[in-house]
Design a protein around this nucleic acid. Structure first.
Length: 850
RNA sequence: GCCCGAGUGGCGGAAUGGUAGACGCAGCGGAUUCAAAAUCCGCCGGAGCAAUCCAUGCCGGUUCGAGUCCGGCCUCGGGUACCA
């Protein structure tokens, strides 16, 4: 029985309180008269076991959930599983078995590991995105989106493994080769399904201004990702180009540099390049070489600049006698702008590198303020001149606006010039591309459409949903098992009733995670959402997750919420689904390494290393902390920590020391220290001497209430922890006894409850608390107990601290000034002279300028 | 490459432009103990006998005053559209 054990023993007390909460249904989310609060942590991928990163993430969310609950909110705090994805298929390939069994097995394991943490989760709302029901609702959403014109089909490039005959994910391409086959990967075009997120570019961009509860860094990243730009679109007239390519359309954000143009560069995927390649083996070979770079922006941008001179040319729009050569360049992206650019090497790093490599002219358009043509040309010969657009420069080859103006002004003037003369127009473009959701993989949500010879691509009828994955599949050969399944593809056309073929693409798993927050508001509804529940619970008041999701997941979710509003599945207010966002850091650990006979690294688990040596005495090399990963074996299993120290210790350690947004290093010393402190709290509550009041202790308790409340509200859990250490130290030192002491202990229990809920219940019970602390509400600080009558003012002389004085809190400035001037140290420094300046910052500091 | 962060004692970190190092870990000294563990008390950035000086990744700037603001770097981390 808790309360009568003689020492802190979480192994018995934690299950006891978890049972008490379960019996009281403390965490069941209900719609009632209280204001609601929806706290959500990014749901986990069921990889097999929970790790410390999960413990940290879910503990933080739990602190918020329990804190808000204590403050009188009706809290929704759910949990689910992001259950589709590649690892399940990889496991099936490597170890046999079925992705479904692997996934649900992992979920069962991880749920069992998560529950002992004592999280205040409403488990009745749990679901996995691979559940038939979730698949059904997601397919219903897809059909509604299709109907609303939010979905399109078009061609896109994928990584193609020519040996395995399969599409590879970017992470499966290593140094340009397929991870299994080792064959050089090719870019291949496929017709794919897309969500038309780019229709919402401007909306998603401008709405960022309203996301007050989001970190500035995430808002900035999203802004840059959407990438709104204003530029000039115009056409170069070609000379001797193939039929149908009399003009090449280009887009530039720097039309003011047009007079410094030295070449035109086309993407290897540009239609004219494809046309040229058909009749020119050299060009075809060059394109093939470019296509080996891979599909990622990173690979394309960091690859060495390669160009191919087509021998063709264009005429300059401002001078018909001026010819510019047409090159094909591997760094020009077909996805952005028009797939064609003009190079202006004097004012662009990449163009400069390209021009230098291929001996193309470098001609300055502008130079530093006051420079003439020769000086400007001289400056850009070795390196490009790329000042901020807001900086004023001297145009030496300008053609519109003033000779001296900012880049910004010159761009505007150049666009106006082009529109007047009729050779181009100002356009706004976005970097954001449509969201390709087609995956040529088995373990995902099937796209509910069929292909009919007579009707074309036809959406499946809603009454035929869900389209479920076939179970009888094997992963003993590469490629998508859906493609080779004997019968699954056979369907009938919902329009004509004739024979049709099922779509075998499944959806990107980002689709699954783009609306799970909405499903949690009514997880068992027969439609994707229930309107009354969505109205009550949306939006997510506090969303918590890793910074690695700052762009894709969060942007897709923002789009998806808008799409759900448009199709009537969410109320208008939910188009920005996350009111506040917090991004937490990773959990890291040192890496322990030895080397085998051939010098290859061998990694060791932390639990096998004591004082830098293995059990057999071999010394290990200690590598600085990095994100916990299985391959480096620098992992600490939360299950072991909970078994030896209890959940509260794991929780407390994850909250202490490091600020939540930063990485935290797991150390065994830190975990032991956490356990020691919790044991001390336990003893403190046990030791209840009779005695009287201690006004200082009461003041400490109320200061702690104020500080802990503020710290939790601002996500500074490490500071809340520090304040609770201070309070515990104050209790330990105080002579207070009896009810006065018990009252402070009850406050301590209330303040501890969001962080270490089991121990808080123990302390609450021992110190005469009624009922459960989880139902006790949040304490309020008495403002009268928070103010000090006197303050200590440091005295600086010329900015360096030299002395201090103690004054009444409300002493007028002139009195402080005379006290300061009378101070011995000040007089010594002034040496009889009058101070040049005397700065008194009330309640803060005094600075004497001698 | 591009976008976004972070960098403070031996270590994790604290500090509305106002006493740099709260709180904790490690370490050192003491109490208790036959002894140890546990616990409790004290000290704890560096140099110096001291006055004082040096110190928040590096270089410069703004300010009475900069860890904090501005400019330029370095290192590490996240993202880079099919990892989740």
């Amino acid at each position: 029985m808790p309360g009568v054990t003689m020492s802190y023993h979480p192994a018995t007390s934690e299950p006891h309180w978890q049972q008490a909460w379960a019996d009281a249904e403390s965490f069941r989310a209900v719609r009632d008269e209280r204001p609601k609060y929806y706290v959500l942590e990014m749901f986990p991928y069921p990889s097999g076991r929970i790790h410390m990163g999960h413990v940290r993430n879910y503990t933080m969310g739990d602190v918020v959930a329990r804190f808000k609950r204590a403050q009188g909110f009706s809290v929704l705090h759910p949990m689910g599983w992001d259950a589709f994805g590649m690892p399940a298929e990889n496991a099936a390939m490597e170890q046999g078995g079925h992705p479904r069994d692997w996934t649900y097995g992992n979920i069962a394991t991880m749920r069992d590991q998560l529950k002992p943490l004592g999280l205040s989760i409403d488990w009745s709302r749990e679901f996995a995105t691979c559940d038939d029901d979730y698949v059904a609702q997601q397919q219903a959403l897809f059909l509604d989106f299709l109907d609303a014109g939010l979905i399109t089909r078009k061609s896109a490039q994928v990584n193609w493994d020519p040996v395995d005959m399969t599409v590879l994910a970017n992470e499966q391409v290593i140094d340009g080769k397929g991870w299994r086959s080792g064959a050089p990967v090719e870019r291949k075009e496929l017709t794919q399904w897309f969500f038309r997120i780019s229709d919402y570019s401007d909306e998603l961009l401008s709405a960022i201004d309203g996301l007050d509860g989001w970190p500035e860094k995430v808002r900035l990243m999203q802004q840059n990702w959407i990438g709104k730009s204003r530029g000039l679109q115009f056409r170069f007239q070609t000379v001797d180009a193939p039929d149908g390519f009399d003009e090449i359309e280009v887009y530039t954000t720097r039309p003011d540099t047009l007079m410094g143009a030295s070449f035109v560069a086309l993407s290897p995927d540009h239609p004219m390049v494809k046309q040229l390649a058909a009749g020119n083996a050299e060009i075809a070979a060059f394109i093939e070489e470019c296509r080996r770079i891979g599909t990622t922006e990173e690979a394309i941008e960091t690859a060495p600049k390669m160009g191919f001179d087509t021998g063709l040319s264009v005429t300059h729009p401002l001078d018909p006698d001026w010819k510019l050569p047409i090159w094909i360049a591997n760094f020009v992206l077909m996805d952005y702008g028009t797939g064609a650019i003009f190079g202006s090497p004097a004012h662009d790093e990449r163009d400069h590198e390209f021009a230098t490599k291929y001996g193309l002219p470098i001609r300055a358009t502008f130079g530093e303020k006051g420079m003439d043509l020769a000086a400007a040309d001289g400056m850009v010969a070795k390196a490009p001149y790329v000042p901020l657009k807001s900086e004023t420069v001297s145009y030496v080859r300008g053609f519109s606006g003033q000779p001296e103006q900012s880049g910004e002004a010159a761009v505007t003037a150049a666009i106006a010039h082009a529109e007047e003369q009729g050779y181009g127009e100002g356009v706004t473009k976005y970097r954001l591309r449509d969201w390709g959701i087609s995956r040529q993989r088995y373990w995902g949500c099937p796209i509910p459409v069929v292909h009919c010879d007579s009707c074309g691509t036809v959406p499946e009828a809603k009454e035929n949903l869900p389209v479920l994955l076939p179970q009888d599949v094997s992963f003993d050969q590469p490629g998508n098992p859906l493609d080779r399944h004997p019968s699954w593809r056979q369907a009938s056309c919902p329009e004509c009733g004739g024979a049709a073929t099922r779509e075998t693409d499944t959806m990107d798993t980002f689709v699954d995670s783009s609306w799970y927050y909405a499903r949690f508001t009514s997880p068992h509804a027969a439609t994707p959402t229930d309107r009354a529940d969505a109205d009550y619970w949306m939006n997510v008041d506090q969303y918590i997750g890793g910074i690695e999701h700052a762009i894709l997941h969060l942007l897709y979710s923002r789009f998806f919420a808008r799409a759900m509003v448009k199709t009537g599945h969410l109320p208008e207010q939910a188009k920005e689904p996350f009111d506040a966002l917090f991004t937490q850091g990773m959990v890291t650990h040192e890496i322990y390494m030895t080397r085998d006979a051939r010098g290859r690294p061998v990694y060791h688990l932390p639990e096998d290393v004591t004082d830098g040596t293995l059990a057999d005495g071999t010394a290990v090399e200690v590598i600085p902390s990095a994100k916990m990963s299985k391959s480096k074996k620098n992992v600490v299993d939360p299950v072991n920590i909970v078994a030896s120290f209890g959940a509260d210790t794991a929780r407390w350690f994850m909250l202490s020391d490091s600020p939540p947004e930063r990485d935290v290093e797991w150390t065994s010393a830190g975990a032991e220290a956490a356990y020691k402190f919790l044991s001390r709290l336990w003893r403190l509550a046990d030791d209840a001497p009779e005695g009287g009041d201690d006004p200082e202790l009461t003041r400490s308790a109320h200061r702690a209430i104020a500080d802990v409340t503020k710290s939790i509200e601002s996500f500074a859990f490490n500071k809340a922890v520090a304040k609770l250490y201070e309070l515990a130290n104050a209790v330990g030192k105080s002579k207070a006894g009896g009810e006065a002491r018990r009252e402070v202990l009850r406050i301590t229990a209330q303040l501890l409850a969001p962080m270490v809920p089991h121990l808080a219940e123990e302390i609450w019970a021992k110190s005469g608390g009624i009922g459960l602390v989880v139902d006790a509400g949040w304490p309020k600080a008495d403002p009268a107990l928070l103010v000090d009558d006197t303050v200590t003012l440091p005295i600086q002389i010329n900015g360096k601290r030299r002395a201090e004085i103690s004054v009444a809190k409300d002493m007028p400035k002139d009195e402080i000034e005379s006290l300061v001037l009378a101070d011995e140290t000040v007089q010594k420094f002034l040496d009889g002279a009058a101070p040049k300046k005397l700065i008194v910052v009330t309640g803060r500091i005094v600075n004497v300028v001698a």
